[in-house]
Each structure stands twice: as C-alpha cells, then as structure tokens.
C-alpha cells in the first residue's frame, strides 16, 4: 500500500486496487441503470415510429440538421478531450488534466448553447407540445403523398407526439450534460491540487465514463430524431 497518499484510500478498502475496482464497477452498474432509463424513451420512440413512419418523418423535417450535426461533432470532440483528461490523470500530469477538463467543459457548454438556440427556434414556431402547439403539413407534401384532409389532421396530431418525444429525449440528455458540467467544475479542485495519479484517479475516470455515456445517447438521438426526415422528404 502506498502510504504516501493514504488520505485518498477509504478506510473500508484494503488497497488502491480494490478501491479502483469497486469504483469503476459501481460506475458501470450505474451506467447500466442509465441505459435502461433512456431505454424507456427509446422503446416509446420505436413503437410510435414503427406505427407512424411518415408522420414522424414529416415532423422530423422541422428539426435543424446542420445544428444537430454540429452538436454531434462538438460532443465527439469533447469525448476525445475527456478521454485525454483521464489519460493525463493516470499519468499524474496536473496541468494537462486541468487543461483537458477545461476544454471538455467548454465544448459541453458549447453543446448547450447550440441546444438553447434550437429550443428557442421551436418556441418561436410553436412546435412545443401543449395547448399552443401548432403544426402544419406543407401543401407540397400533401400533394406529393396525396393525403386526405383527415390524414393531414392525424399527421398533425402525431407530430405532437414526435415533438413530445423530442423534448423528453433531448431535454433529459441536456439535463445530463448540465449535471456533467457541474461535476466537471467540482473535479477541477482536486485536479488542481494534484490529487490524481496512477493509484487514485477514479473520480476523473468515472466522470469520463459518464461523459462518454452522454455522448453515446446523443450518437443515437441524432439519426433517430434529426435524420429520418431527410430521405423521406428529399427523395420524393
């Protein structure tokens, strides 16, 4: 046992090895829990999407693909800087850990800013579910798919379900990002104090796992929510 930094070894663990094993296993079980948490939303999405393919495609075409793609790139980049921060924490390179953490947080905030503009756009166009929800199928689409007036009405209702799912999924995802940014800021203090090294870096590692998980969710949200309208409407 390395007695030099025994303050970071909790008393009920026998060794740093055991503490690290327990910590990362605990984090993975937590992520399994997160998978099922988002899984409920993905299940709802799958059922409605398979039942209302065209309706969802039409609703989806109201999302902003360039902004969605930009956010995907931002998150992937932040995953990279996060992975580097974990690497530097193992190597106990204090300044590099702090630097990469800051980069990660800046990218995370960038994502949230883009998301803010996207949400604002939805509020402007009243595509936020609720009493003021308004959605109109474009005349070209009605002509293209030869939709009856009743069909247009159901389509507008299904669009509200799509946007409900959109706001639930991206909202919970954004909430996870906000929490992540909070944890990241809190981690800066031990990072600056040089607490992390080969034996003790679980906080950074677990934060990294959490951050990557949030990235993973977005990797699925982006095609499912943004892209499935692209072909249906461009191809016709």
């Amino acid at each position: 046992m390395a007695n030099g930094h025994s303050t970071t070894l909790h008393h009920h663990f026998e060794s740093y090895d055991q503490q690290r094993n327990a910590s990362s296993l605990g984090m993975w079980f937590f992520l399994a829990q997160e998978v099922m948490f988002f899984g409920g939303l993905f299940t709802a999405y799958m059922i409605y999407r398979t039942q209302n393919g065209l309706d969802f495609a039409v609703a989806s075409s109201h999302l902003n693909i360039p902004l969605g793609a930009l956010n995907t790139a931002i998150l992937i980049a932040s995953s990279f800087t996060m992975a580097m921060a974990v690497k530097k924490s193992v190597l106990a390179q204090r300044k590099a850990i702090v630097g990469y953490l800051i980069l990660t947080l800046i990218l995370g905030c960038g994502f949230l800013v883009v998301k803010y503009f996207e949400y604002a756009e939805k509020f402007e166009h009243n595509t936020v579910p609720g009493s003021s929800f308004e959605f109109h199928v474009e005349p070209e689409l009605i002509a293209q798919y030869d939709l009856s007036p009743e069909r247009v009405v159901t389509m507008e209702k299904r669009a509200e379900i799509f946007f409900s799912l959109y706001f639930m999924m991206t909202g919970l995802h954004a909430l996870h990002m906000v929490i992540g940014v909070g944890i990241g800021i809190w981690l800066m203090f031990p990072a600056m104090a040089g607490k992390f090294n080969m034996d003790y870096h679980n906080p950074v590692e677990n934060f990294g796992l959490y951050w990557h998980f949030v990235d993973l969710v977005w990797i699925f949200l982006f095609p499912l929510l943004y892209l499935l309208g692209g072909n249906a409407l461009a191809g016709g």
Binding site: M36, G40, A44, P129, E160, I161, L165, M168
Partner: peptide, 27 residues
C-alpha cells in the same frame, strides 16, 4: 430506472402537456 422514466413521461404529460400516451393524439 424503467418505472422512473415511465412515471416521468406520464408526469410530463400531466404537468407540461406533452402527449406521449395521450389517445387523443394517437398515443
């Protein structure tokens, strides 16, 4: 976590007016 997210969806429907299980919208 599945019951948690399910109640969250039903709650969002009740409070925020999101319509995920709402039969009036085809839910």
């Amino acid at each position: 976590p599945v019951v948690a997210i399910t109640l969250l969806m039903a709650g969002a429907e009740r409070v925020l007016g999101l319509g995920i299980f709402d039969p009036a919208l085809g839910g």
